[in-house]
Write a protein that binds this DNA or RNA. Structure first.
Lengths: 343, 343
DNA sequence: CCTGGCACTCTGCCCAGCTGAGTGCCAGGG
DNA sequence: CCCTGGCACTCAGCTGGGCAGAGTGCCAGG
């Protein structure tokens, strides 16, 4: 067993060719087919030697003795890191994306369109996380008296997200008190990032008559609760029908994936592992969740302006078109960001 | 070819036994196995004769000459209509349902819990429609000035649904005008069914100063739009992982189903075909949508109080446990209704 | 260091034969 | 008149052998 040696250029070219062919045909690729389809300038025998070396280093693997080679997770990793360029979308594609997303009427619609678009472009399962509350800022807080002891609290963020909660007040609330509270809340909180808000408002009850303080505190408590509810993180999914093109050993592969997709928690954790900047590609066993061990996840943050407020990505078989997928993911993320910034 | 004759009791019993066994084993059922498992009190030969008659009438069918029988859609139909009783949930099950749904914090959560519960109970794909706007009544309308020319309109329904829209006003809006409009809107619309609201409010602009009328009209227009947006009908889905237990000829069956599930429109139409009262069971080809031709849909309306505001149901293979599924669907619908009525 | 040649190893496929489940029909009996 | 036991028949699915083809590893020569 040799130790890891540096791979010369031709070996890398061979690996690249193997990945490309295998992704295209879904069948183990042999030395002869390789030299025919890619003009490597050498004979099959030479390629075979290179393949043997690649196999020894764990980049490719042979299902059975007399079969062609298949890239391993490690092979894909090398491919993604060093052999592939993100394939940019063409101008017409970009226009189409832009146009499609521009038609959205509200946040729900934007997210829905994004996820469907991504699924269509990549022909894989797409996942989009709603802009999270924690990175957003307050656009407006509204209080509405619905009944003598019931107040509705509405929180609107700069990303267009709206959260509402019912508050059961301990005592009657006058309209003037409510108006006062509303005004104070807004002057102090608007424009601030959500996590900072509790700190800014904690002394607020002191500004009210002692009789009104319990009510004010209750409202504030509910507001803080809403702000803190990270678990309110929501996710939208599309393209599950694309799972049917996963492979031949179908039911076995697909079952755990479907189960993973049902679990918002799993998906959130998955996206959570995305690096804050740049695109993240997790290949096969690099995924922490076991059910996704034969899939790859390409994800990226998106946001209004320069900082990312949420993540999106696609889930597909490890045998996927990485350059194309990465291109699509990047492009979509960019345009959603723009849309959010505008609205 | 005989014309349709009335089936005697034993033939019906045979059909029932065939359905039950086939649903359990997923394999064509033969005469011998039948008499062994159900004490029909006759010999296999007799059962064979009955089977031949049932086959001639199209209730069952033989995959190949030397195989057992499988119910046809028509057979399932007869089974559901005349041979099966809805199997009620047991008391502990009902308590569990109740308890699980009681934990919900808002409408989103209620729907999410409902759909997951239904998927778990039936081990099939569950679909729940959000309480539709058209059958709801107005609980509150709120107007919030966000910027000089920007007003946010919030509509809250009795089912807890909240819709919000941005309104770009043609001219500046004073806070007093806004308050006036808010008050008028609420006194006239609260408690009314959504579809009636436009009629009630159409003369409203006349009650304002001419200068403010364009603004009032714009706000009203947006409100009416929101009310009319039937297509804002939303649907939640769970249990897609259960598709893997669909059958052996797997990929073929599952692909069109997954596609159907992706299309909200298809699902909405599906639920739309549910009768207003009572449970609807659509078996195989009874489904208008072609992709669902080998599935059955069990659906029912649910609502707060006595009238139904939305539908829910499950989608599974025609070979499903109808009594159990129907029991679960009915029970869940009932409890969601209760929860909605209370909140 | 590359190449052509060669022997080898498998998988996948086809074909034939067998087994077993299940049927339809018929003649006899209650 | 209906049920029953018996019997011959059919056919899907499994098994095993044999064959073809793809692909490999290795080696000797350029």
């Amino acid at each position: 067993m040799y130790s890891e040696r540096p791979l010369d250029d031709r070996k890398l070219a061979v690996l690249r060719a193997i990945v490309q062919d295998y992704v295209g045909t879904e069948e183990p690729v042999g030395s002869k087919a390789l030299v025919e389809r890619h003009n490597l300038g050498v004979s099959p025998a030479t390629v075979r030697n290179d393949m043997a070396a690649l196999e020894e280093d764990g980049y490719i693997h042979q299902p059975h003795t007399s079969a062609g080679r298949i890239p391993t997770d490690k092979g894909y990793r090398l491919f993604v890191d060093r052999l592939a360029e993100v394939k940019p979308m063409t101008a017409p594609e970009r226009r189409a994306i832009r146009h499609f997303l521009d038609g959205a009427v509200d946040l729900d619609d934007t997210v829905a369109r994004t996820v469907r678009l991504l699924a269509q472009l990549t022909r894989q399962v797409a996942v989009v996380q709603y802009p999270s509350l924690s990175r957003s800022t307050v656009r407006h807080v509204e209080l509405v008296a619905l009944a003598p002891l019931k107040v509705m609290l509405v929180l609107i963020t700069n990303t267009g997200r709206v959260e509402q909660r019912m508050v059961d007040c301990p005592g009657a609330v006058g309209e003037t008190v409510l108006a006062d509270l509303r005004a104070k809340l807004n002057t102090q909180a608007v424009g601030r990032p959500l996590p900072e808000v509790p700190g800014l408002l904690e002394d607020l009850p002191a500004a009210f008559e002692p009789a009104d303080r319990p009510t004010v505190s209750t409202v504030l408590a509910t507001l803080f609760e809403t702000l803190a509810e990270q678990n309110e993180e929501r996710i939208m999914l599309a393209g599950t029908a694309n799972l049917t093109r996963f492979g031949h050993d179908f039911p076995l592969t697909i079952q755990p994936v479907l189960e993973a997709l049902e679990e918002q928690v799993v998906l959130l954790r998955l996206l959570g592992e995305t690096a804050d900047a740049g695109m993240t590609v997790r290949i096969g066993h690099e995924n922490a969740y076991e059910g996704l061990n034969s899939t790859s996840v390409v994800s990226v943050g998106y946001g209004s302006g320069d900082q990312s407020v949420a993540k999106l990505g696609v889930i597909g078989p490890t045998r996927m078109d990485y350059p194309g997928t990465m291109g699509a993911v990047r492009a979509v993320a960019r345009y959603v960001g723009q849309i959010l910034a505008e609205s």
